[in-house]
């Protein structure tokens, strides 16, 4: 008559896109404990508006801006890159694998490649001048800064003079790599030092698991 009912927290809280932390840890710079801690964060984000255990764009924006209606070109691009399956939500595995690129121990070339895909707005394999201008305009709009159109053109033109070494009016991935190696600060935002301390920031999952185990 015995009913073996598991009460471990890891079983209770599994979301639709849950993946084995051991596998995720083997594919990313995270340890199993860090993946567990990321799950704690994931649960919080994925239930902030729609309680379905999946991160929707509004929830992602809410976490970034404290405002679910904030429209932001870059947040949209990040969301789309995290949403590898392109099904409109970020699942747990996608969340961990994508954040892995932002880990301090992740390969530099992965960070450079991710940033390139981020800025290649129309996914043509090149960053074009119009895209760069569009991104500058989005940044200015977001910051409430004003620059004249001439100034914007001048900034974009100068950047292309420096980065587009093949002078074909677009920046390819090799040119991007070379440009980043000359300006390493460009991918500073591709590293989140916080990820090294993720188990300190979200210790409750691990503590609870240990107690129940």
């Amino acid at each position: 008559m015995g009913c073996v009912c598991s009460t471990s927290s890891s079983e209770k809280v599994k979301t639709p896109g849950y993946e084995d932390p051991t596998i995720l840890a083997s594919e990313t710079p995270f340890t199993v404990s860090e993946v567990d801690a990321l799950y704690e964060l994931y649960l919080k984000l994925s239930n902030s508006i729609i309680e379905d255990g999946l991160i929707h764009k509004e929830e992602f924006q809410l976490a970034l801006f404290r405002n679910k209606n904030e429209k932001n070109l870059f947040a949209d691009r990040i969301f789309d890159l995290f949403d590898v399956k392109r099904n409109g939500v970020i699942e747990f595995g996608e969340f961990v694998r994508s954040l892995g690129v932002f880990h301090p121990n992740a390969a530099l070339e992965d960070k450079i490649a991710f940033a390139f895909r981020l800025y290649d707005l129309r996914q043509t394999g090149y960053i074009e001048k119009q895209e760069l201008k569009e991104m500058v305009l989005a940044l200015l709009h977001e910051s409430d800064l004003y620059l004249s159109d001439e100034m914007i053109e001048s900034i974009v033109d100068k950047t292309f003079e420096d980065a587009d070494t093949k002078e074909d009016g677009r920046i390819d991935e090799d040119e991007w790599k070379a440009f980043v190696s000359q300006h390493p600060s460009l991918i500073k935002n591709m590293t989140l030092p916080y990820l090294k301390d993720i188990t300190l920031a979200f210790p409750s999952f691990i503590a609870r698991t240990e107690v129940e185990d």
């Binding site: 977001e142 100034m151 001048s154 900034i155 600060s185 916080y194 920031a201």
Partner: peptide, 26 residues
Amino acid sequence: VAPVTMNAFELISKSQGLNLSSLFEK
């Protein structure tokens, strides 16, 4: 003074939308 000497990517990289550290704020 307008940052005319700043390269465009440097400017863009300052976007709040690219600042994922906000995800970890409680």
